[in-house]
Computed example of a mutant assay.
Amino acid sequence: MIRSLVAALTLIAVPAAAIPPAPPTTTNPADRPLIAWLPGPVRCAGEVANPVTMRRPLTALGWNGMTAAPAPVVVRFAIDAAGRPVSIARAEQISAVMAQDIEPSLAASRFAAGAPRQGCEVRYTLRITPMDATPVEDLASYTVAPDSGPLPQAGWDRLHPAGSTCFDPPRPQPLVRVLPEFGTLPATPGVRDWTLVGYDLDARGRPIEVRTVHGTGNRVLDAAGIKATRASRFTAGARTGCRYPYWRAPATLAAPEGPDPETLRPAGATCPDEGGAWTTPPRLSYPEPWRRRGIEGWAIVAFDVAPWGEPGNLRILASEPAEAFGQQAEQVIRAGRKAAAPQGRSGCIERVRFLMPPRGAAETGPAEMPID
Score class of each variant (00 low, 15 high):
Ser87Ile: 06
Glu137Asn: 08
Ala361Lys: 12
Asp202Gln: 07
Leu185Gly: 08
Lys227Asp: 08
Pro70Gly: 11
Arg56Val: 13
Ala318His: 12
Pro342Leu: 13
Pro281Gln: 12
Ala223Met: 06
Pro161His: 04
Glu330Leu: 13
Gly360Val: 11
Pro152Asp: 11
Pro281Ile: 10
Phe182Trp: 09
Gly275Tyr: 06
Gly119Gln: 13
Leu34Ser: 07
Thr26Asn: 11
Tyr199Met: 07
Gly205Ser: 05
Cys348Pro: 12
Thr263Pro: 10
Pro370Asn: 04
Pro174Glu: 00
Ala99Glu: 13
Gly183Val: 02
Ala45Phe: 02
Arg219Ala: 15
Ser285Val: 00
Pro41Ile: 03
Arg293Trp: 03
Leu185Val: 05
Gly163Leu: 01
Arg55Glu: 15
Thr270Glu: 12
Ala78Arg: 15
Leu5Ser: 04
Ser319Tyr: 10
Val144Thr: 15
Ser141Ile: 02
Pro366Lys: 02
Ala81Trp: 03
Thr184Phe: 03
Arg239Trp: 04
Ala306Val: 07
Ala318Arg: 14
Glu209Val: 00
Ala89Val: 14
Trp156Asp: 05
Arg334Phe: 14
Val197Cys: 01
Val73Leu: 07
Gly149Leu: 01
Pro24Ile: 06
Val197Glu: 05
Val75Cys: 09
Arg243Leu: 13
Glu181Ser: 07
Thr125Gly: 05
Val86Phe: 09
Ile35His: 05
Arg158Trp: 04
Ile128Thr: 09
Thr165Glu: 07
Ala269Cys: 10
Cys271Phe: 13
Trp63Gln: 03
Lys227Ile: 00
Arg291Val: 06
Ala203Thr: 04
Phe167Asp: 08
Asp372Gly: 12
Met369His: 07
Arg158Leu: 00
Ile88Met: 05
Pro23Trp: 12
Glu363His: 08
Gly198Phe: 04
Ser148Val: 02
Thr212Gly: 01
Gly163Val: 02
Ala78Ile: 02
Gln328Trp: 00
Pro261Glu: 11
Leu221Glu: 08
Gly225Gln: 10
Thr143Gln: 09
Val191Pro: 01
Glu350Phe: 09
Phe234Trp: 15
Ala69His: 11
Glu274Thr: 14
Asp273Leu: 14
Gly294Arg: 00
Gly40Phe: 12
Pro24Gln: 10
Asp101Arg: 06
Ile349Gly: 06
Trp194Val: 03
Phe77Ile: 09
Ala36Cys: 05
Pro170Val: 00
Val97Gly: 10
Val191Cys: 04
Gly163Arg: 00
Glu103Leu: 13
